[in-house]
Amino acid sequence: MAKIALITGATAGIGEACAHLFAREGYDLILTGRRQDRLDQLAQNLNSTYNVRIAVAAFDIRSKEHVAHHLETLPAEMKLVDVLVNNAGLSQGLDPIQNGNTDDWDTMIDTNIKGLLYVSKIVSNWMITNGKGHIINLGSIAGKNVYTNGNVYCATKAAVDALNQGMRLDLLPHGIKVTAIHPGAVETEFSEVRFKGDKERAEKVYEGFTPLSAEDVADAIWYVASRPAHVNVNDMLLMPTAQANAGTIFRG
């Protein structure tokens, strides 16, 4: 029987790249995201290319009720999840704390922290029952280094870093692996979402250097997921060559 990977935020960027990579490696997939049309198109493409089983579930990860409903109503055979990629996350705004938009704060906290927790609670219990599993949490260099005007986004990714360490301890007796991947600058829809559709401003974020691609990060995720059963990568920091830390990028 093929292994199964559940990937959140699969409709674009790193999540979509992971879906392609895990499907290519023969995994059946559970793909989640907010955009039903994109999920359906991705599932069709992957199925026709790789001939793997795919279940899709369109919901907003911020809703505890929707997460529970869509995951718990999956077929029993799809709950034998081997790898959970907690990829769904976002940033909103880039303002100093005194000017911050509290709605943006709520969106980031509810998505990046609470959404990750809602999914992890359900899937970790499946893994405990199944006696195996690997949870891979998408953090960020922002969770390691705070940068100017990053305040709340950085705080949410620092929380992911802490939760990753807590999960590693809590799930240790059950033989479940836990890993965090912390990328630096990755050129995806991230900045466009942060700047609420301002493509020109988003493009300037990546001017003058070569950022990571979604495929680069997916490759790192596959690397940790494909290690032998006795090997766990606890924490990986993945940076463009031109970036030294969260706030230092050499733009040639």
Score class of each variant (00 low, 15 high):
residue 152 V to S: 05
residue 207 E to R: 09
residue 161 D to G: 08
residue 225 A to W: 02
residue 192 E to Y: 09
residue 174 H to P: 03
residue 211 P to N: 05
residue 207 E to N: 06
residue 220 A to R: 12
residue 224 V to D: 01
residue 200 E to A: 13
residue 165 Q to V: 02
residue 195 F to E: 11
residue 191 S to W: 08
residue 179 T to L: 10
residue 181 I to D: 05
residue 170 D to W: 12
residue 224 V to F: 05
residue 165 Q to F: 13
residue 176 I to F: 02
residue 140 S to V: 00
residue 173 P to G: 04
residue 136 I to V: 12
residue 191 S to R: 15
residue 218 A to H: 03
residue 150 G to P: 10
residue 177 K to H: 12
residue 220 A to V: 07
residue 226 S to N: 10
residue 181 I to K: 01
residue 170 D to Y: 13
residue 223 Y to S: 14
residue 153 Y to R: 06
residue 182 H to I: 03
residue 225 A to G: 02
residue 214 A to D: 00
residue 221 I to G: 00
residue 210 T to K: 08
residue 149 N to H: 11
residue 136 I to F: 11
residue 148 T to M: 15
residue 190 F to S: 05
residue 215 E to P: 05
residue 218 A to L: 07
residue 224 V to H: 01
residue 146 V to W: 11
residue 214 A to R: 06
residue 159 A to S: 13
residue 198 D to G: 06
residue 153 Y to Q: 15
residue 206 Y to L: 07
residue 212 L to G: 00
residue 135 I to R: 05
residue 180 A to N: 09
residue 167 M to Y: 14
residue 181 I to N: 02
residue 179 T to K: 12
residue 184 G to I: 00
residue 152 V to N: 09
residue 216 D to H: 13
residue 152 V to F: 14
residue 180 A to E: 14
residue 200 E to H: 11
residue 214 A to F: 05
residue 181 I to F: 04
residue 147 Y to V: 08
residue 150 G to A: 06
residue 151 N to S: 06
residue 191 S to C: 07
residue 144 K to F: 07
residue 166 G to N: 15
residue 186 V to E: 00
residue 188 T to E: 01
residue 196 K to P: 07
residue 207 E to Q: 14
residue 204 K to Y: 07
residue 193 V to Y: 04
residue 166 G to P: 02
residue 206 Y to P: 01
residue 139 G to I: 00
residue 180 A to K: 02
residue 151 N to L: 08
residue 184 G to L: 06
residue 222 W to V: 10
residue 212 L to H: 01
residue 137 N to L: 08
residue 176 I to A: 02
residue 180 A to G: 14
residue 186 V to K: 04
residue 218 A to R: 10
residue 229 A to S: 15
residue 181 I to G: 02
residue 187 E to G: 01
residue 195 F to W: 09
residue 180 A to Y: 02
residue 218 A to K: 03
residue 182 H to A: 13
residue 220 A to F: 05
residue 221 I to Y: 00
residue 145 N to C: 10
residue 163 L to G: 11
residue 221 I to F: 00
residue 145 N to I: 05
residue 214 A to E: 01
residue 169 L to E: 13
residue 140 S to G: 04
residue 192 E to R: 10
residue 160 V to S: 15
residue 145 N to G: 08
residue 165 Q to N: 14
residue 192 E to C: 15
residue 228 P to A: 06
residue 146 V to T: 12
residue 215 E to A: 12
residue 223 Y to V: 04
residue 176 I to K: 02
residue 227 R to T: 11
residue 156 T to Y: 07
residue 192 E to N: 12
residue 154 C to G: 15
residue 223 Y to C: 13
residue 175 G to W: 09
residue 150 G to H: 04
residue 143 G to D: 01
residue 184 G to P: 00
residue 226 S to P: 01
residue 151 N to E: 14
residue 171 L to M: 04
residue 203 E to R: 07
residue 225 A to C: 10
residue 205 V to M: 10
residue 167 M to F: 08
residue 185 A to K: 12
residue 175 G to A: 15
residue 138 L to R: 01
residue 137 N to C: 03
residue 169 L to D: 11
residue 137 N to S: 07
residue 224 V to P: 08
residue 185 A to N: 06
residue 213 S to L: 13
residue 177 K to G: 04
residue 194 R to G: 00
